[in-house]
Design a protein around this nucleic acid. Structure first.
Lengths: 234, 234
DNA sequence: GATTGTGAAAGCGTTCACAGCC
DNA sequence: GGCTGTGAACGCTTTCACAATC
């Protein structure tokens, strides 16, 4: 007994960490590690053990008290929960610098997100092959999406074209979008959007850098903010 | 009176949104807009107005009740707070696919983060020019960093090389790192680390996609999770 | 003895709602 | 009348601490 399908909703913060645990567990399994405690996993992931246990508890009670977790079984459960039991082909809109890098980046296909198509508005780019995929014209987006049953789109256009790209993706039937353009896009309700803005990440670091220099010649109590960091090494 | 330097600490969540407001305000200013209310800015940024006001209040009381904010003045204040009153040259470690795309991406230099150097361990890549910068060998990292007074490093290596890259950056004197490799890196206390993991973002979207399909044939109450999204368009 | 799973406490971040000011 | 600035309420996330289990 005990329901096995889409159990209680998992907190977003946990969903964002599960892929990290998954990668670590996969790597360890490949190296022959069959069991792991929350302490060990926490060490690899750079978080604390209580968080690991709480996160994993949302999947169910898959550990063994006094022993730890079975690595292979956990990998399976996380993959199932994240919906990674099958591939999710993606379509990239924008075959410029970034679009090409993403298409050529094996980390996508390797992790279950093969590039199912690339489109661009620029006729000069149409027909060229990047990452083994032929660039097609934006007007063919719908055929690409429906032909390959794609539900995830990646926007790699300049900011000014991002909203058009989003509209085109939604129009073609895509229901999740990962936006690399430095622009907020509007989409209908029911469409998921993830955002990666490279400049924003650098500006956050600049803020910390600047604080550090201010602090150096100002008040005491430095200690440094930041976020994902830890001691040792170097 | 009234301290003008490193005022009360700004919450991380706010620091992450200030660059978004900054970009919007700059664009609007370029189009001749001189004043804006929190409602308008919130609309552009895709957040709610109370959040905008709370965020801006950490900078000081720079609005005018009944009127709104002066765009040019706000741009100046945000730039000052984020430490964007001068450029922050960055050094990229890894001249592969991603490193090259980052070096060629104008969005960096345009926003005050010119590429001050690129290094790689691969002798075959050393000497080539990407994004107008000559690739140098990793062993020259310290000279690059110190010669150009660089404090921000970008890791664009494969996962397996990321920790070595981080160690090399810290050894060379860099104090902030933006890590694109799919690996958790360990750094000494006092070093800030930002992380962008492309596969993680896609896996989060896959989770939502999978939930959507489960929900479609399971329980009612769909409504969709996600995060940065909104109504209208397409 | 070791380690999980989880209530309860503490800490952050968001939203509400309204007093204060133009 | 309109809009900011902010205390207070709320909700989500992290951390603690320990009983339950192997």
């Amino acid at each position: 007994m005990a329901s096995q399908r889409s159990r209680r909703r998992i907190p977003e913060a946990t969903v964002a960490r599960l892929p990290v645990y998954l990668r670590i567990l996969g790597e360890q399994f490949d190296e022959g590690v069959t069991g792991m405690s929350s302490d060990q996993l926490a060490e690899f992931a750079g978080v604390n053990a209580a968080k690991v246990r709480k996160d994993l508890s949302y999947l169910g009670s898959y550990g063994t008290r006094g022993v730890g977790y079975d690595v292979e079984f956990l990998v399976y459960q996380i993959r199932r929960e994240l919906g990674l039991t099958h591939d999710w082909p993606v379509v990239i809109v924008g075959a410029g610098n970034l679009g090409q890098a993403l298409a050529g980046y094996n980390g996508f296909g390797d992790r279950g997100f093969p590039v199912g198509g690339i489109v661009d508005v620029d006729e000069a780019k149409v027909g060229s092959v990047v990452g083994g995929v032929r660039v097609r014209h934006l007007s063919e987006l719908k055929q690409v999406v429906q032909g390959r049953n794609i539900s995830i789109g990646v926007i790699a256009t300049p900011g000014a074209a991002a909203q058009d790209a989003a509209d085109a993706l939604v129009g073609a039937g895509v229901t999740s979008i990962l936006n690399f353009a430095p622009t907020v896009i509007n989409v209908p309700h029911g469409i998921s959007v993830g955002k990666v803005d490279l400049a924003v990440e650098l500006q956050i670091l600049a803020y910390h850098e600047q604080r550090r220099s201010n602090a150096a010649q100002g008040s005491p109590l430095v200690s440094v903010p930041g976020e994902p960091r830890r001691g040792a090494s170097a």
